[in-house]
Amino acid sequence: MSGLAAFAEALLADDAPCPPGLVTWNGSAPDKRFAVYRNNVIVGLVDALADSFPVTRALVGEEFFHAMAREFLRRSPPRSPVLALYGEGFAEFIAGFPPAAALPYLADMARLELRRVQAWHAADADAITPADIAAVLADAENLPAARFTLHPALFLLVSAHAVVSLWAAHQAESVAAALAAVNPAQAETALLCRRDLEVEIYRIEAGTTAFIGRLQQGQAFGMAVEQALQADDDFDPAAALALLLRAGAITHITIPRRSDP
């Protein structure tokens, strides 16, 4: 094993001895000096996760989060020097982490928070303008075949737990009071999108979820509305479109020229 390999291995291993070949000018044992590096690596990466997963952290408390994060990062250290997006796989790790088993919603909270970070850093795209929409409506005959391009920062997260309400409760002035109104076992779907540089999170119902999901997959407008109505009798296409428009989430609408009869 090369010198740096031993050094790297000792950084991530728990209670590993100091790597060989280190010296100090005053003959002091190098362990304590090496521990500075180990501490920097572990704390730096735990901090990166703590910044990206603030509600996950709040739910379990600082001490538990730190311990859980260091277990994760020792198994899954970042593969890229770009730490902004570090945390892929954290939710899956949490789902299989026995000490967190009492909180079945915790993994989905981490999924939501990773999506939030991804949405925050996603590519920029301009929303369609009223003039664009007017042009589309002028060609209303082909509207059912229209295909929407949604913003790169738009994400859906379907959960069997009340992730949006739990997340929202942590933004309240009194978190405890807000949490008292939440039933964690309630299934919820989150819509994330970015407007004016800030990520917004909405709780959406089954019809809206189906509608946006289909649009995101590239299905035609008319088909997406039909699927949404199948998912939810009460689906209101105007309200769902208004949500997307208000969020600046539609960046392009393509109406196929009449190639089909």
């Binding site: 949006v164 933004q171 990520v199 917004e200 709780r203 809206t208 479109l241």
Partner: peptide, 10 residues
């Protein structure tokens, strides 16, 4: 609206 409630209060 649209069966959606805004949760974000960034």
């Amino acid at each position: 609206h649209g069966g959606a409630m805004k949760a974000e209060t960034e």
